[in-house]
C-alpha cells in the first residue's frame, strides 16, 4: 500500500514538472502558433545560472535563474521570432529549432559539454513522512509548486486585463488587434511568463538530479512537446493535462512494466501518444479558434 502511494506521488510529481514545462510551451503556441524548441534552452540556461551563482544565498540564486530565463525569452522573441511573426508554422518551427541549437552550441562552446554537479537545496532531498507514507520532500514541493503556479497562471489569465487580452489574442490574434490589443505586449508577456515557468522547472530539476548539462532542457521539452500535442495544441488546459499525462504515465509505466521492458517505457509512452492522436488528432482538450474557417 505504501509502495502504491509512493508511486502515485512520484507520478504526480513528475507529471507536475512536465505539466509546467508544457504550459510554458503552450503559452507561446497560443499567441504565436510557434512551438518554441528554445524553451529547453531557457531551462538549461537557468540551471547554469544557478551553477554560476552557487554559494550565494538561495533567494539570490533563484532570482538570478528567473531573471536570466525571462530576459533570454524576451531576447529570443525580439531577435528571432518577431521578424517571423507572419511566417507559416513550419518556418516558425524551424527557426525555433535553429535558435535552440544555436543557444545550446554556444553554451557548449563556452562551458564545455560535460555535465557538472550542483548541490542545490539538498535539504529537499530528505525523506519525510506524510500520513504514514515515506516520501521525498522534493516530490511534495514539486507538486505544491506546480499547483501554485498553475493556479497563479489561471488567475492571471482569467482575472486580469492583460490575461484577457492574451486569451483573446490566442483565439483570434487579428481580431484582438482590431479591437486595440497590443500584439507586441501580449507576446512579450507570454514569453516572459514562459521564462518564469522554465526557471521554476529548472530549479526543481536541478534539485532532483543534482546535475547540470547542456542537453538537460532539450530532453525535457521533447517529451513536453508530445504532451502538448496530445493535450491539444493551442489549449492551455490541454497542454497542462497532456504534459501531466506524459510525465505521470512514464512513471506509472516504469512501475508496472516488467523489468526487462522498463527501459523502453518512453517508447510505450509515445506509442500511447500515437494511439491517442489516432482517435483524437485535435488533442484531448482541443483549442477553439484553431481550425481555419473556409
Amino acid at each position: 500500500m505504501e509502495r502504491l502511494v509512493q508511486i502515485v506521488v512520484d507520478a504526480v510529481s513528475v507529471g507536475s514538472l512536465y505539466a509546467l514545462t508544457a504550459l510554458g510551451i503552450g503559452l507561446i503556441f497560443g499567441v504565436m502558433r510557434l512551438i518554441n524548441f528554445a524553451h529547453g534552452e531557457l531551462i538549461t540556461l537557468a540551471a547554469y545560472t544557478l551553477l554560476a551563482l552557487s554559494g550565494m544565498p538561495v533567494p539570490v540564486m533563484i532570482f538570478g535563474a528567473v531573471a536570466v530565463a525571462v530576459l533570454l525569452a524576451l531576447l529570443t522573441e525580439r531577435a528571432a521570432f518577431r521578424p517571423l511573426r507572419n511566417a507559416d508554422p513550419t518556418t516558425l518551427l524551424i527557426s525555433s529549432f535553429a535558435v535552440s541549437f544555436f543557444l545550446q552550441k554556444l553554451l557548449i562552446l563556452v562551458v564545455g559539454s560535460r555535465l557538472k554537479g550542483l548541490d542545490f537545496l539538498p535539504a529537499l532531498g530528505r525523506q519525510t513522512e506524510l500520513f504514514g507514507v515515506r516520501l521525498q520532500l522534493l516530490q511534495i514541493v514539486t507538486i505544491v509548486v506546480g499547483i501554485v503556479l498553475l493556479v497563479a497562471l489561471t488567475w492571471f489569465l482569467k482575472a486580469t486585463r492583460l490575461g484577457l487580452h492574451m486569451r483573446a489574442a490566442a483565439e483570434d490574434f487579428r481580431m484582438a488587434r482590431v479591437l486595440g490589443v497590443r500584439a507586441n505586449n501580449v507576446i512579450a508577456v507570454a514569453f516572459a511568463l514562459s521564462g518564469l515557468l522554465a526557471a521554476a522547472v529548472s530549479c526543481l530539476i536541478v534539485v532532483q538530479t543534482g546535475v547540470v548539462q547542456p542537453r538537460m532542457g532539450l530532453q525535457l521539452v521533447i517529451i513536453a512537446f508530445v504532451g502538448t500535442v496530445i493535450g491539444g495544441l493551442g489549449s492551455l488546459p490541454g497542454a497542462a493535462l497532456g504534459g501531466f499525462l506524459v510525465g505521470a504515465g512514464s512513471i506509472l509505466l516504469q512501475a508496472l512494466l516488467p523489468p526487462d521492458l522498463r527501459a523502453f517505457r518512453e517508447a510505450f509512452v509515445f506509442v500511447a501518444v500515437v494511439a491517442i492522436l489516432l482517435f483524437r488528432p485535435q488533442g484531448l482538450i482541443p483549442a477553439r479558434g484553431l481550425r481555419e474557417r473556409i
Binding site: 512551438i35 513550419t90 518551427l93 508530445v226 502538448t228 495544441l233 501518444v273 500515437v274 488528432p281
Partner: peptide
C-alpha cells in the same frame, strides 16, 4: 496537421 505531425 503540419505542426503536430512535425512534433510527432
Amino acid at each position: 496537421s503540419g505542426v503536430s505531425a512535425s512534433i510527432a
